[in-house]
Design a binder for these strands. Structure first.
Lengths: 343, 343
DNA sequence: CTGTTAGCGCTTTCAA
DNA sequence: TTGAAAGCGCTAACAG
């Protein structure tokens, strides 16, 4: 920068003003141009450390993820990354233990997005205080504002789809109930069941981690129930894959004997067997809005909880259909039974 | 830091030495303790920007990924992240256009891992020069050292498995031939075919992107060939999923009529239909070694290309088996045909 | 073993 | 519209 000043015949402070893109043009166009030329000539590259030291801003954000393997988070990150870039920020992606990561990130970032599920109070004190933070895809009572999608509505849409098809014995392979998404999706399931005049049978709700293995195990249990459910709504994609595998293992045909609807419409959903009907949720939008909130928080505005209001869609594929005939009309069956006894 | 110095009754330079964990203990234990206590008391947090400005090191690395959706890269990142953390570095994960990302990362990181496929020369000049860099999972003639796994060997293992099962008409759903992994896996395929005395039929090698859709399309083509292959080796997991879907679509039974072997043993492999036989490759090790090389490069050592030497494993599941009877013994069939004609 | 000193490269008052 | 000057917090010679 000193070199540029010299080359342009001005003071470094002027160079700084020009190169920082200071909008108020208290610089003669001629001078500005000379500086710009000199900078290009000398291939000037700002020293971020010096700039950070002076401004105490790093222009870096970070997002803490539970797991890089979960493709749903990849989509959230895409949305967040796009928004962050647009605002001139770098987005750092990290996984692992929250306190440990916060300790390592501390001082290197201007703000933190937390998408990891935490068991409550393990957030270091500085998070949300000295370090602006936003919870993504989860809410928590406490000082940190959140950005979530309307999981209940999305879940309700799935249930509604199954109800419309004629299902009445609908089960739910739920996510971990210590996670906020797991709870809200289950709530949406239960609410929509009741709203449709259906009972939430306790044995038809099985909780487990968001993994294929857990989905598999849960479905095995559900499919051994008598009578068994005619439809299963799973709280994420991996679980749905597990459910499909379980049905296959037990020889339960989909969708003839069992309908399955998943959560989050990932690319692979259309390539599994059968192609998976899913509800599509606004993951990218959530990431993008989370960054927006975070930028507000950094700017010192006070930030409220946000619920992404992009309406979910249902993508119907081969894994859902009407319930098996005998189940489609249980009242008739009962009636016939009655008649039989009368006869 | 000044406050600590004051509280401990020493100079800030001593504080700096103690808190930087300077190994050479040219500090009286007593003094050291006083400083440590004061630091804890005052909740001292180092200012990274100031430190970076002085040392011109940021203790941050970055890895550039083609795509966050590809779970194989998630595993590479895990390995890299673990190694980086152990060395006190933060690992930044980024995707997108290389030149653009490099521009944004420039000055914020001490080194760069490049796992994105690039079409040749689009690497900015500073990469590998001012900014130490290592190519991960791909090689390229040029100034940047690489860390790769032995893709040829891994691919050969898959072919060998199929040959041992008795297959002779083996096809390959190859990755993009403009990527290094795509080329090397195809090479491994071809070499092992020849080593097994089998011919590489050009129509049995179909190239495409590493996606489900491409795998699907390639398999449709392969399965329309006459005679069609009895086995398909795919260059990644997503393609294998596409191949399974295609076989299903055409009513080709797996493994009875067609064996499928995938590349990269991801969790989901055991939950698809049928469970996918795969070769397991040393992804995490590759990530870890890549960071190791990068640290060497940062330290100014000269770094050579590395090939991860963890031997691959074959994980046999339901998608591979002996070829259909008529194919298992083509010589016999011919012989019988001969006899018939003789009769 | 500890203190003195200079300065990393930049921004930002303040004064001219 | 430009220049002078101070200093962000830390490290690393070097001297004592």
């Amino acid at each position: 920068m000193r070199d540029i000043a010299e080359a342009a015949g001005v003071d470094v402070s002027v160079v700084s003003r020009v190169l920082s893109g200071d909008a108020r043009l208290s610089v003669k166009p001629d001078t500005r141009q000379r500086i710009l030329d000199a900078a290009a000539e000398l291939k000037y590259r700002p020293n971020r450390a010096a700039r950070s030291l002076k401004t105490s801003r790093t222009m870096e954000l970070a997002i803490l993820l539970p797991d890089l393997q979960n493709v749903a988070y990849a989509t959230i990150v895409q949305g967040a990354e796009a928004r962050a870039s647009a605002a001139g920020y770098i987005l750092l992606v990290a996984t692992g233990s929250i306190p440990e990561r916060v300790r390592m990130l501390e001082g290197r970032i201007d703000g933190l997005l937390i998408a990891s599920a935490t068991s409550g109070s393990e957030l270091p004190a500085e998070v949300g205080e000295r370090l602006p933070a936003i919870l993504v895809n989860r809410r928590e009572s406490g000082r940190i504002p959140s950005v979530v999608m309307n999981d209940r509505e999305v879940a309700a849409l799935a249930v509604d789809h199954l109800v419309m098809l004629g299902h009445t014995r609908i089960a739910h392979v739920a996510g971990p109930q210590e996670t906020d998404t797991g709870r809200r999706r289950m709530q949406g399931f239960a609410e929509q069941m009741r709203a449709s005049g259906l009972e939430v049978v306790p044995e038809f709700v099985v909780e487990g981690p968001y993994t294929e293995a857990a989905g598999f195990a849960s479905a095995i249990r559900l499919l051994h129930a008598k009578p068994r459910p005619t439809a299963i709504f799973t709280a994420n994609f991996a679980s749905a894959v597990g459910v499909l595998a379980a049905a296959r293992r037990l020889g339960v045909r989909i969708p003839d004997e069992l309908s399955v609807v998943g959560f989050d419409d990932v690319t692979m959903a259309q390539f599994v067997d059968p192609p998976l009907s899913t509800v599509r949720s606004p993951l990218a939008e959530m990431g993008s809005l989370a960054v927006e909130s975070l930028l507000d928080a950094i700017a010192g505005k006070d930030v409220r909880d946000v619920v992404v209001d992009v309406p979910p869609e249902l993508v119907m594929r081969g894994s859902s259909g009407p319930p098996p005939a005998i189940d489609a009309s249980p009242p008739e069956a009962v009636a016939r039974g009655g008649r039989t006894r009368q006869a």
